[in-house]
Every structure is written in structure tokens, then in C-alpha cells.
Design a protein around this nucleic acid. Structure first.
Lengths: 137, 137
DNA sequence: CATGGGCCTTCCAGTGACGGGAAGGTCAAG
DNA sequence: CTTGACCTTCCCGTCACTGGAAGGCCCATG
């Protein structure tokens, strides 16, 4: 049952997060490390778990508010996995929507790039498209 | 050679952009509509062209700074299409990078969602993964 | 002539998720 | 005693807007 007691710098290295980010997470209430007599933050085992949890969730693209909900569920032994799954599925849908949007942009942009000579002449189908000129049939 | 003279509300409807956005574009120097005697903005044909250009470029995901460069090239009759193409290609690469990132997130997340029962029991592989628990071989 | 409604104006603040940097406190080593 | 590496708080900047407050302009109606 030994418990760690790390400074923010040590916690940052352990959790692979910038110290700035950790302070921010505390500010918005995602973690609440203790304080030492000198005012320094003290991170214990449970804090480290939450930090690595946050790092992983954020790297999967969950929003901070998602993370807040997920951490609550994580700490709640009587949670229903359905709640977690619902958050994850909603996030999956956001990702799919974003990918569809990017995919559409990519297609248009790729066509335009292909059609542009890219030399020192001024004629440019890209600018024409942006300006609203209809490409000739 | 007739020239329009639209109010910001009319310009907004014509360019399919919120009036707020148009004011913002003026603030950051992307457009410079004239002013009427009463201080109201007056949008003429060339302003409308720039606004629709901006709307289209933004919808393709170009940043505001890209748009600034593109507008400059658009107005420069002696531009080289290579410059336009370079901006577009760089943007394409940003899109590809973003899509790759999303794709990786999506794959992980999809696996996790698939593996979660999503019922009223607390066991949840999603939370376990976020917490850093290695899935059993 | 007063009033109401629909425009328009500027200015300020907030968004998400931090990052940069200033000004200053703490602590161990040399 | 000083140096340097930490730590603290605080405030501003990012990006591309969006919302809202407070007030001016103009036309139509009563």
C-alpha cells in the first residue's frame, strides 16, 4: 500500500503530459492534488492514474467534458458500462462526421490541385473555382 | 459596368455568410468596404466577389491566413499558378495528416466500443483501456 | 409629431484546450 | 552566499468566429 508523492514535474514525466496541462486540469477540477507545506502540488498514485487516464482519453480525441464524465464513471464502481459505451459511440460519430467533412474537402481540393499547371503562368483553375467560376463542361 | 451597393445584411444574404463574420473579415483586413455618410458599410461588386471567394475557400478548410494569401494572388494578374498550387498542396497535406490521425483514433475507439457489452454491469473494457490496463492476451 | 420595428454601429466577452512568459518563492549543492 | 533548478500564481495569446449589450439611423404607422 505504498503511495507515491510526486512533484508536478515528476508527475508530468510519469504521465507524459506537460506540467502546464496538469495545472490546467486542476484548475478545471479534473484532478485535486494535495498541497505540501510550501504550496507545492503533491501527486499520489490515484492522481497519477487519473492523469494517465486523461492523457489516453484526450489522445483518443475525447473532449474535456467527455473526460470529466468518463472519470466519474471510472471512479464509480456501480456504473453501467452502457453509459461509457454511449459516450464512446457518440464520439465515434463525431469522428465519422469530421472524417466525412475532411474527405469531401480532400476530394475537391485534390481535383483542383490536379487541374492546376503549377507553373509561372497566371492561369489557375484553383483560383477560378474559389472565385465561383464554373468549370467548362 | 453597373456596380452594386449593398448593406451588410444584403451582402450577407448574397454571400451566404453571417454579417458578424463579414465584420470580422473587415476587422482583420480581408475586405475594406466603403462607408456611407451614416457610417453604414457599403459593399460593391468587388467586395462581393471577395466575400464569396472567402466563403468558398473557408469551406474547403483553408485557414484565414491561407485565404489572405490566396486573395492576394487572386488580385495579382501576374501571379504564378505555382504559388496557388503550393498553398493548396500544403493544405491537402494538412488534411491528410488530420485524416490519418482521426483514422487511428477511430480504429482504436471502434475496437473498444465493439468489446464493451454496454449493459448495466460495471465491467467495461473501454474504461480499462483508458486506465492503461493491458487487455489479456 | 411620437413611436415602434428593423436595420445598422461599436465594443466587450466567451468559446476549447491549452502554451508562453513574467514575477517571485523554495530548496539543495557548491 | 549564490546559483540554478524547481515550484507558484497571474495574465495574455491562440483560431475563427459568436453572442449580446448599448446605442444610432431610418421609414412607416397612428
Amino acid at each position: 500500500m505504498s503511495d507515491l508523492a510526486l512533484s508536478i514535474g515528476e508527475a508530468a514525466r510519469a504521465a507524459h503530459l506537460p506540467a502546464k496541462t496538469i495545472r490546467y486540469y486542476e484548475e478545471i477540477g479534473l484532478i485535486t492534488p494535495r498541497r505540501d507545506a510550501n504550496g507545492y502540488r503533491v501527486f499520489r498514485t490515484a492522481d497519477l492514474h487519473r492523469l494517465t487516464f486523461l492523457g489516453r482519453a484526450r489522445s483518443l480525441g475525447f473532449t474535456i467534458e467527455d473526460c470529466r464524465s468518463l472519470l466519474t464513471l471510472y471512479a464509480d464502481q456501480s456504473r453501467a458500462s452502457a453509459e461509457v459505451k454511449a459516450i464512446a459511440r457518440a464520439h465515434l460519430e463525431r469522428i465519422d462526421a469530421k472524417m466525412a467533412e475532411l474527405s469531401a474537402m480532400r476530394a475537391t481540393l485534390d481535383t483542383l490541385v490536379q487541374s492546376c499547371a503549377g507553373d509561372d503562368r497566371p492561369d489557375c483553375p484553383i483560383l477560378q473555382d474559389l472565385a465561383g467560376v464554373q468549370p467548362e463542361a
